[in-house]
Amino acid sequence: MKITNMDEPALTINNLTKTYASGTVALSGVSLTIPTGDFFALLGPNGAGKTTIIGIVTGLVNKTSGEVKVFGDDITTNPEQAKTHIGLVGQEVNFNPFEKPFDIIVNQAGYYGIPRSIAIPRAEKLLKDLGLHEKRDQRAMTLSGGMKRRLMIARALVHEPKFLILDEPTAGVDVELRRSMWEYLKGLTAKGVTILLTTHYLEEAEQLCKHVAIINKGSIVASGTMSEILAMHDDNDPKDGAYRAGKLEEVFIKLTQN
């Protein structure tokens, strides 16, 4: 039976480092805490280390040193328990294209130890909620890009995780679908699910997230509530006549340009 200690932060990272076999230093001493129930944005340019952090937290990448705990469960000493709390929507589409959406979701539940008698009604509901029910028995390769993203969300939610990680979930998704996805995810946070989001759509992060951390070249360069980060914005910058983006984007550019 899955027991989640809701008194602990959803994610605690202490002094996390990662150096790949090639010698590339991806993370150099990252520390981060995500409170339970938060909608947290982890922002950074390409190659900053966002996906490496997510890979380490979910068990897909080995850390070099440091400590990572999910609801108090250490990913090194108690990986199986830590993983029960997490649902992952990865950056790349990573399901078998020859399988049917229904089977992909039900099998994913099985890997979490959920029997088919429970998994099947859950899969049916998720397929309906995410507008995929008509496609339930078609091969996944026939789905559109947006549908594939939604299928990955359904797959990540079938074991009812308390901590959902979304690594650029709206990349390549049209505006209308992005809006409906955000509404759905906001509904999840209202039910107590903690969400960690990475995205390049900073205006969306600005609207959705309570807390934000900005990472650049493997180090956290700013972290706090959204209002604290936005307060770093200088209204006189950029100079008159230059392109002016949203506040978060201006802060982001300022912190990551070096």
Partner: peptide, 18 residues
Amino acid sequence: QAKFFSRNIDEILVSPTP
């Protein structure tokens, strides 16, 4: 194939399956 082509081995690796 699950590891190299569709990378769907991640479905199992992120789960608590020992």
